[in-house]
């Protein structure tokens, strides 16, 4: 199908209203027959996402087209809480690329219903890209949406998970752990846990990897503690 046909289809569907219907935008994505057309169609769908477009946007995360997946993710993020349950239900166990994008969407939405999925993905996913995304996201969940008695336990488990990942042999996971710990420290301050995070960050300012060392120093300034010389 040519771009012209897709455009015409959108025009036909939109005859009654000023903008194309969600159905027309979805059809354009599903019928795109080249990476370029897919990208253009996803861009239009993600620009005005509605709840009926959620399954299509989630499918695009698995098409192994980074540009389209990134746009689809942004569309899902705009939909916010409505996208959380479908993203969790349709997490792709076989395609780590799709899984990483779905996790990134959940991370940006920050809904604590994703906590269990993020904890297990951060600790043990097969794919480092999935682990990095989940690890970062553990720091910025909207904790206040949890009832008091659940919040404390959730934060304690998150802290232990992040402290473990901070010891990983892969620099990119230590880096992501710092980003997660920085977010958690801001959520927990002031507290004993927050001090524990600062101590961990302080240790990492002498990491053997320069990027990790730099990220730890930056995190300390963000959480309000100046990095100290050893």
């Amino acid at each position: 199908m040519t771009d012209g046909v897709i455009d015409q289809m959108i025009v036909t569907h939109s005859a009654a209203s000023p903008s194309p219907t969600p159905e027309a935008l979805i059809a354009a994505v599903e019928q795109a027959d080249s990476p370029e057309r897919l990208l253009a169609a996803v861009q239009r769908l993600a620009a005005s996402p509605s709840e009926v477009s959620i399954p299509t946007l989630i499918r695009v995360l698995g098409y192994n087209n980074a540009g389209a997946a990134s746009l689809a993710m942004q569309g899902l993020v705009q939909l916010g809480a409505a996208a959380v349950a479908p993203l969790l239900d349709q997490l792709d166990d076989y395609n780590y690329g799709a899984r990483a994008w779905a996790i990134r969407a959940l991370v940006a939405i920050r809904d604590p219903r994703a906590l269990e999925v993020l904890l297990s993905a951060a600790a043990a996913d097969f794919a480092p890209s999935v682990r990095r995304a989940a690890t970062k996201g553990l720091g910025t969940l909207l904790w206040q949406q949890l009832p008091d008695h659940q919040r404390w336990q959730a934060q304690a488990r998150t802290l232990e998970t992040l402290l473990t990942i901070a010891q990983d042999s892969d620099w990119s996971l230590r880096y992501a752990a710092i980003v997660g710990l920085q977010g958690l420290a801001l959520a927990l301050a002031p507290s004993r846990e927050c001090n524990r995070i600062q101590q961990q960050l302080q240790q990492m300012t002498t990491d053997t990897d320069r990027a990790v060392l730099a990220r730890a120093r930056y995190a300390l300034t963000v959480v309000g503690a100046a990095p100290e010389t050893a």
Partner: peptide, 30 residues
């Protein structure tokens, strides 16, 4: 237009050249 992991590793190469371990203060570029 590439996977995030390739972009992350590329930027790491840029960052490493902006870091001096003995210098605690990070530059704006870093």
């Amino acid at each position: 237009a590439a996977e995030n992991s390739f972009k992350l590793f590329s930027l790491k190469g840029l960052l490493e050249q902006q870091i001096y371990p003995e210098e605690l203060q990070l530059s704006t570029a870093a």
